Amino acid sequence: MKECGFMFKVIVVDDELIIRSSISSFINDCGAGFTVAGSFRDGSDAIKYLEENDVDLVISDIKMVTVSGIDLAQYIYENKPWIHVILLSGYTEFEYAKAAIKYNVKEYITKPTNFDDLKNTLIRMGTLITEQHSNDISVFLESIMQLYAAVIAKNISLAESQLKLLLDNNTRKNEQLGQYAFNIFEIIIDKLYANLNIRITSDIADYTVLRETVDYDKTYELSALILECIVNHLLTKDKKTDNIVVDKLIQFINENFSRNISLQDAAETVFFNPAYCSRFFKEQTGEKFSDYLLKVRMQHAARLLKENKKINDISKECGYHSSGYFTRVFKDYYNCTPSEYIHNS
């Protein structure tokens, strides 16, 4: 399944070289519309790759030496939720694989791999990805989020270009452009109040006039003026809006780190798309979202260790599904195991 002539990217993760190689070769040759961007023998290697690269799909074995397929699925769920995951599972591991449902894993392939099943699964995934890419509602919301982000950043030139793009791409043929523009501003103004407690009143920007506007040129002209009024109003605020957004993101992490939260969950609280939210958080705090979440979890884990809590209980309180994975993450962070940390303390 191809979209507009390009191939979807996939990585293959399995600790057995012969399985990695055979699956990778089959994917490249089977004509399902995917190309293998890389293959890795452990989830830890895959995570390092995904920190710097994007793909559409990850195919991973469940049981591996250091970081399992479920651990990898958790990383993707928390940091790159737009990537789809297929897990390879032996019959005896199938109950274990069901645990990955909470990390949005929707496809499983039993081992040894039946290549007909693999091809059919790839075709289904390709169709799903294509539908997501072409979904008008998703595209509209994504564009609205980009406009909202530009408004929050008080970048008038970027906001104007995003607004023009939205107006140019109006696909609602049964709706006048003026009404369409009105709906856009209604969403932006509603989110400014809901997320930042900033109220845009009619004396600041009377966007209701757009409802009756039918002339295209007039709609573009009025929309640009209203947008400028909104951005200028934000510029008059004493507290920077970006600080308010960062505070809200940090509050979300501090209040929810014990759950299976993801970057997308955090982004939704401030009406950003995940990719922009990730960049914004790094620009404002100097830390990646995933690094900050990890820091909060590890600091909480250290406090609980000093209270002599059990490792199983600590891992759950810190948002990890298994104590083994928690221990590996803790050791990577503090350069010692939890028991060594207690002893050193």
Rank of each mutant, 00 (worst) to 15 (best):
K2V: 12
G5N: 09
M7P: 09
V10Q: 09
I11M: 07
D15T: 05
E16G: 12
I19P: 04
C30Y: 01
G38Q: 00
G43Y: 04
D45Q: 15
L50V: 00
V55A: 04
V58P: 05
D61P: 01
I62D: 12
S68M: 06
I70N: 05
A73V: 00
Q74P: 00
Y77M: 13
E78K: 15
W82T: 05
I83R: 01
H84F: 08
I86S: 06
T92R: 13
K98D: 08
Y103L: 15
K106R: 14
E107M: 07
E107G: 06
T113C: 12
F115Y: 12
T121R: 11
M125Y: 01
T127F: 02
I129D: 01
E131P: 00
S134I: 02
S134W: 03
I137M: 12
S138I: 13
S138Q: 10
E142T: 05
I144H: 01
Q146T: 11
A150G: 11
I152K: 08
I152V: 10
S157L: 13
E160C: 07
K164H: 10
L165C: 12
L167Y: 00
N169C: 11
N174R: 12
N174Q: 07
I184S: 06
I184R: 04
E186M: 14
L192N: 09
N195R: 13
L196G: 08
I198T: 04
T208E: 02
T213A: 13
K218I: 04
E221H: 06
E221Q: 06
L222D: 10
A224G: 10
C229P: 03
L234V: 03
K239A: 15
K239E: 14
K240V: 02
D242L: 12
N243L: 10
N243E: 11
I250S: 08
I250P: 03
F252D: 11
I253L: 14
N254G: 12
E255Q: 02
S258A: 15
S258Y: 10
I261C: 06
S262Q: 01
A267I: 00
A267S: 14
E268C: 12
T269N: 04
T269A: 07
S278I: 00
S278L: 00
S278P: 01
R279G: 10
F280E: 10
F280W: 10
F281R: 13
Q284P: 05
T285K: 14
T285S: 15
K288F: 09
K288M: 09
F289I: 04
S290E: 13
D291P: 02
L294N: 06
K295N: 15
K295E: 15
R297I: 00
R303H: 11
E307V: 02
I314N: 10
E317A: 11
G319Q: 01
Y320F: 12
R328Y: 09
F330S: 07
D332N: 15
Y334E: 12
N335T: 03
H343I: 14
S345E: 13
